[in-house]
């Protein structure tokens, strides 16, 4: 049966041009019952998903269990610290990473401010999630980036996947994850954040290593470095500015995702924003939003200061 015949059967002849309906699944179904409707298709997809869910869970559950554990512990630890200890530790980290007095003072002021408006505990929850997720992104993303820099085939395959991860609207991630894991488990939002935020860590590690000066690599070869020595002594150090730029982006993406992840029970400032939306508590939402902005600036400034420090070591002219 040709398409034309189908269309004419479905009603409407050649004469009434405007009345020809678009041959969508639903329209075609009316003409021929064996063609599925759109809602059959979505239902089928759902069934398929439910069918593969259990086998996938068998594999994924034990693999991701440490993530739940790490998130729970990080959040608990952060909250069990007395406020002054937490602030001292954070300020120390900021100083060690950035070595810029201005940035460190800004960090101190920000946390004191958050504490003053009673948002400190929420901010600590958010921060704990970001730290854990960023750490995992680096631990997984950098090796993937290294592998990608060494194989053009892998790069060709991974690039569209990374593109997809970055362009998918953030809510869409949550859909398959909600199917797979229960909403009470921290790993649900942990995975969502990591999938979203890991992309720049992978990309910029790959890019950084590919951009390493070919002359220096040749020197490394000429003096008989093994590929391991080359990686540790030449490629990673020379790619470090790019890798750090990737980590900076990873941190910022984690923050934006952790807010959305409050939809699936991620604790922290995001829950306040959500409350503001759900219960129309405008003030609560706005102040929590402000807290997120402050946190964003703190994270960005500190990681940028660290990046600049690395850059300076490499090429002081720039």
């Amino acid at each position: 049966m040709t398409l034309d015949e189908l269309v004419s059967k479905a009603g409407g002849g050649e004469a009434e041009v405007e009345a020809i309906p678009f041959p969508s699944l639903d329209v075609l179904h009316k003409a021929c019952g064996s063609i599925p409707r759109t809602r059959d298709m979505t239902a089928g997809l759902e069934r398929l998903f439910l069918d593969v869910k259990d086998p996938i869970k068998v594999v994924l559950d034990p693999l991701t269990q440490p993530l739940s554990w790490a998130l729970r512990n990080a959040i608990e630890t952060m909250q069990s610290l007395p406020w002054w200890a937490a602030i001292i530790i954070l300020v120390l980290i900021a100083q060690l990473a950035g070595r810029r007095v201005g940035v460190t003072l800004f960090v101190l002021a920000s946390f004191l401010g958050l504490a003053f408006i009673d948002h400190f505990a929420y901010a600590m929850q958010t921060l704990a999630i970001i730290l854990v997720c960023t750490l995992i992104c680096v631990l997984i993303g950098v090796p993937i980036g290294i592998a990608m820099s060494r194989s053009n085939v892998l790069e060709r395959w991974l690039t569209p996947m990374l593109d997809m991860l970055q362009t998918l609207p953030t809510f869409v991630y949550l859909i398959p994850l909600i199917f797979l894991f229960s909403v009470t488990e921290p790993k649900l939002y942990g995975i969502a954040i990591i999938l979203y935020a890991i992309v720049p860590a992978i990309r910029l590690t790959n890019l950084g290593i590919r951009l390493v000066d070919a002359d220096v690599l040749e020197a490394a070869d000429a003096f008989g470095m093994t590929s391991r020595q080359k990686l540790l002594r030449v490629q990673l150090p020379l790619a470090l500015p790019n890798i750090m730029a990737g980590i900076n982006q990873t941190i910022m993406l984690s923050l934006s995702m952790v807010v959305i992840a409050s939809l699936v029970s991620a604790p922290g400032l995001g829950t306040l924003v959500l409350r503001g939306i759900n219960k129309l508590e405008l003030g609560v939402g706005l102040v929590a939003g402000l807290g997120i902005v402050i946190l964003a600036i703190v994270l960005d400034r500190v990681s940028r200061a660290a990046l600049q420090r690395v850059n300076k070591m490499h090429q002081p002219g720039a």
Binding site: D215, V216, E218, A219, P237, L238, M313, H314
Partner: peptide, 8 residues
């Protein structure tokens, strides 16, 4: 020619 020293 371009020295090719390790900058770090």
């Amino acid at each position: 020619q371009k020295f090719a020293l390790l900058p770090h």
